[in-house]
């Protein structure tokens, strides 16, 4: 852990926000697609996982 001036801490707070939101959105997209989208092919392929992971399935 390196010592940084106060301004750097403030900058890091702002610079973390966009990448964090982007990664969070990708993660949510993966879960939404695997767990919740009702398209038939996707539902059938992910069927067992949806049940076992506790997503509402059909």
């Amino acid at each position: 852990m390196t010592a940084k001036p106060m301004t750097a801490a403030g900058a890091s707070r702002a610079s973390v926000l966009f990448p964090a939101v982007a990664a969070f959105a990708i993660g949510f997209g993966l879960i939404f697609m695997s767990g919740l989208v009702q398209a038939e092919t996707l539902h059938d392929a992910a069927h067992d996982v949806r049940h076992a992971t506790g997503f509402p399935c059909h």
Binding site: V16, A20, F24, L30, I31, G35
Partner: peptide
């Protein structure tokens, strides 16, 4: 297919978790 989708679901959880870790660390 179940293995694949379980990995996708947990990859999604992992991304969300680490994104929030990054915010808390900042």
């Amino acid at each position: 297919l179940s293995v694949l989708f379980t990995m996708l679901v947990y990859a999604g959880y992992g991304l969300m978790l680490v994104a929030l870790m990054a915010v808390s660390e900042a």
